[in-house]
Structure formats: structure tokens, C-alpha cells
Write a protein that binds this DNA or RNA. Structure first.
Lengths: 115, 115
DNA sequence: AATTTTAATCGTAATATTGCGATCAAAAGA
DNA sequence: TCTTTTGATCGCAATATTACGATTAAAATT
């Protein structure tokens, strides 16, 4: 298999998972942190910053771009990357919403009280 | 390869990525949401709830347990799962911290203003 | 026009993930 | 003790991810 059964989950659950998955690699965390700190940068700056090859960095950038967290604007020879404020805001709101959920007290079966 | 070069990133970056990765699958989002809503449940309840086999659900539970988001306490024949408040709090604080980072204005190269 | 710079893409290899059925181990109940 | 219930684990197959070097394409420079 290796194939996630996305059709059996809600769109919201799939979207949440997609955002979380995009952040689920230290290199992509580092890229996002760098762009949050520096506003905008070209790919080469990130290649200098990260312990990864140019092609690998480019691939991570592609994933973050595809999920909507980054934008990449062509600037002559180079490509200027930055946080996509729209996508980033959506990711923040969705993930923050999940993380801020209070732990409910509803029991799934009446007399089960363990944790 | 297929092997993440964790040693070249900070412990914080790796921990953040591990939490995000654990949430990077719709089934695990669904499990966390279910446990947030129901406080505590046995594995069989989740198997009834999710469109996945028992072994697959068990595997997802294992991943969430390993990263510290869930706890599983043996209760006779069954296992009672619940949110691990400590781990969940840490995940919330770390991820919320990243998501709440204001977008900085520092330019990585003086005359580059694109996005 | 030829060269250089920049970054995307291709091809490949190693490893991880997802999912399932089957089996196993432990506790509870008959 | 034998059976049932519960859920972890094993083994397998399909697919995805991670990483790199090599190549390619496009714009800028010479």
C-alpha cells in the first residue's frame, strides 16, 4: 500500500494533516523559520544555510509551496521565496484550533475511567 | 536514502518536526480529535470509528504514543488510550510558538524586495 | 553569440510509510 | 482448563519520502 485513504476522512482532517505533514521534517522547519526571520530570500541563501544539497533544498521548497505555506516569485535569474501569508494564516488557524481544543470529559463508554 | 539527516538540525527543530509529522496523517488527526472529545477510549472504539483495520489503527496509536501525544494504560483485557497532557502541552507550546512567529522584515540581502 | 548564474527537474538508490491479514500473548470469563 | 476478548506484533506488498549528482532551461552578463 503506502497510500493514505484520504477519501474516508473529512476535508478538514486531510487539510490539517497536509499542513502538519509539510512541517514534519526538520529541514522544512528550518526553512520556515528562516523565512519568518528574514522575510524573503533566494533559494541559494537557503542552500548556504542548510546542510543539504541544492536539489534537496529545492524539493523541500516545492513541498512547502505546494501546500500553500510558501510563495516563490521569479526575479530574473533567481527565485525569491517568502511565507505565503494566506496559506500560513490558514495553517496557523487550523493547527492552533486543534492544539487549543480543551480535553473533553465525555466518556465513550459510561463506566470507563482510566487515564 | 530516505533517511532524514537529523544530526544537522537543532533538537528543537527535530522535536517540532516529530510532533508535526505525528499529526501529518488524517487518521492520526481523527484519533487525536476523538480523544480530545471523549477523554478516554479503548482501541476497539477507534477501530469502530475509523475506516481502517485493527492492525492499522494500532500502528497509528503506536506512533502517537511514541512521540508522547498519547498514553495507553492497560485495563485488564483492553487498553485505555487518552491524550498525554504533558506531551500534548509541549506539542501545543512548540507548534503554537512557531505558528505565532511574526513575519520579520530583515532582508537577507539588502536590495532584495520581492514578495 | 558565448558564458555564467540560478534553480527546477530527472534518474537513481536507500529507507520509511501505509495498510492488511494472520498470528500471538495476556487477561477475563465459562 | 478451555474459550473468548482484546490489541500488539509479524510479514508482506505497494507506494512515498529523502537525498544526491547530473542535466536542463532561462535569464543575465560578458
Amino acid at each position: 500500500m503506502g497510500l493514505t485513504k484520504t477519501e474516508n476522512f473529512t476535508g478538514r482532517q486531510n487539510q490539517l494533516a497536509a499542513f502538519a505533514k509539510a512541517l514534519g521534517h526538520p529541514a522544512r522547519i528550518a526553512i520556515v523559520e528562516y523565512l519568518l526571520a528574514h522575510n524573503s530570500c533566494i533559494c541559494g541563501d537557503l542552500v548556504d544555510e542548510l546542510p543539504l544539497s541544492q536539489s534537496t533544498v529545492s524539493q523541500h521548497l516545492k513541498e512547502l509551496k505546494q501546500v500553500g505555506i510558501l510563495r516563490g516569485d521569479i526575479e530574473g535569474v533567481s527565485v525569491c521565496y517568502c511565507i505565503d501569508e494566506q496559506g500560513w494564516t490558514q495553517a496557523r488557524e487550523m493547527l492552533t484550533g486543534l492544539l487549543a481544543t480543551p480535553i473533553g470529559n465525555a466518556e465513550c463508554r459510561p463506566s470507563t475511567s482510566c487515564c
